[in-house]
Nucleic acid binder design. Sequence first.
DNA 1: ATTTTATGCGCAATCGATTGCATATTAAAA
DNA 2: TTTTAATATGCAATCGATTGCGCATAAAAT
Lengths: 341, 341
Amino acid sequence: MKRERATIHDIAKKLDITASTVSRALKDHPRISEATKKAVLKAAQTLNYQPNHIAAALRNGRSKIIGIIVPTADRSFFSSVVRGIEEIANASKYNVMICQSYDNYDKEVATVEALLNARVDGIVASFAKGTDNFDHFLKVRDKGIPLILFDRSNEDLEVSNVILDDYQGAYKAVTHLINQGCKRIAHFTGIRKISIYRERLRGYREALQDNGIPFDESLVIGSNMQLEDGIESMKKLLSLASPPDAVFSSSDYSAMGAMQVLKERRIRIPEDIALVGFGNEPFTWFSEPQLTTVDQRSKEMGNAAAEIFFEQIGAGKKPFVPKKTVLKPELIIRKSSLKKG
Amino acid sequence: MKRERATIHDIAKKLDITASTVSRALKDHPRISEATKKAVLKAAQTLNYQPNHIAAALRNGRSKIIGIIVPTADRSFFSSVVRGIEEIANASKYNVMICQSYDNYDKEVATVEALLNARVDGIVASFAKGTDNFDHFLKVRDKGIPLILFDRSNEDLEVSNVILDDYQGAYKAVTHLINQGCKRIAHFTGIRKISIYRERLRGYREALQDNGIPFDESLVIGSNMQLEDGIESMKKLLSLASPPDAVFSSSDYSAMGAMQVLKERRIRIPEDIALVGFGNEPFTWFSEPQLTTVDQRSKEMGNAAAEIFFEQIGAGKKPFVPKKTVLKPELIIRKSSLKKG
DNA sequence: ATTTTATGCGCAATCGATTGCATATTAAAA
DNA sequence: TTTTAATATGCAATCGATTGCGCATAAAAT
């Protein structure tokens, strides 16, 4: 059963024609007779022929592979984006190659190089947290290889990207809290370097301002936004002379940390302190109380990124103007913030 | 900046040597002088040479890519396995290509074909739920391409695999419940076709038996193991004349469904009914009460699968005896089952 | 001084599919 | 009937890296 893989040459030999003809027949070239096509197809079948993408890729310089770089594949958000990309890619017979940067700059640089060497036709990526030098990505762009960044991106970069309207998400969340009667709303924010956190902070501030609530610096806690950070931050808030009556966290993870602290101390959610997260991670659905959060449209984000890729591919050699897509977040209101019916 | 990609020929021309020499110099061939090697390396640098993996792959028949097929990439368990595989693969300069079967047999078959055409060096896969014909996988094996199945596998298949000792996981979980004083323990089980569910059921039965607790058919509920199914199943159990005092679910998802029903009906967990899930999904940590569950060693599973791949690759043409690895599950005891201190 | 052995590198084929440019045959047009 | 236009296929180069074989030249051994 260890028979060698058949090539178009094997088919050609069997039918006493040339490989060129076989190649053309297989792709339904108009200048090949129906009879030959039928014969080739049949021979391919019996020989169990399977095209060698590698050879085709070498010849025409397109691998039909999209490279994806995510900080980590095992986070719900990123794996959903991946799924979104794959959906679109597969529909066009493209495959995806996934790499993880582990939120590490050096690994990210190495990964870009690896994907370039693998001759992927394009790269879809989300920055590692530590990345603040973008040369490796610019190199991709300058080679004429489609590059689409998502979620974590950089406004100034002349590159296509798909991001969430983080500002609006935050604005909606905070406005919702205000509508629920909250007066002192705290905010957990992340590294300032990453624009998504800056934008969420901006949405927070403006929502307060638009509702005549003064901005209080002491209610904004910066951290790494993990669960443990949420615990720390919440404790810090509770130790204030005048603690908040609501917390809007830029991450579901730290929101969950906050929730734990509150439950331990028997502080009622949302009656005493209302809670809103960001991300709509699956676990927010299972928490008690269920966490109000902002959905990041992860799958749509993947879809959009893939679509931009195909647009750019379709544009061929023509210069492609980087396309910026902004998705509208959805506020998912659940019990953790629902004070009124 | 749109300069063409440099090849070894460009380097050769620049140094007035042949491509053969360049190729050998780049891979540190012993028959090339140090002087030449140094010169080649330097030229490669200045020309910004990047090796074309596609060409190399075509020539030596190895793409340095491992294909992965998972039902869905956005489930914590699978994405962790992927991460585990990638860790090991990357260390050996391999990349992974991820595909999703969406738990659909036809898509799975097509995906196997696609990976074969992409000339991956091996395939790591977990069955789609509906898969009961394995010809497409046997075809992979018969081509001499390393195939490693994980989690969802099939004992009878002469193929390497990495699975969890589901029997032991279930046995531990149920024994734990018994130690907590539970007498009537119910069980949620999945499709019989999938061995993991059969094994968990077996562990459940034997743990009961070994502790002198009679097996009660009416306490075993079969379903699709999603959250909704857990809700249904729990309701069914509560309508029994004599409801259980514990539930061991073969899935965290349906366990969460059960938890919801119990909380709605003000049935105390674990005092009235103790709950144990399976999978150690992230949300089990955030639930209230936190869910006792069985960890599936997902990342280790990925690591192990990748290691088997490299073993088989290393074995070369020598016939490789399929290697079966069984990982030991860990019972994570949390509040949902902790009746005693 | 002659034979061996090492060393360093070039030649040319190869991997499999693709494609521009002929060429040969047949059908249609003049 | 001769010219023109389709139609159907073959030839050979190409994509870029790899590698077995061979041929020099130099160093070592006899």
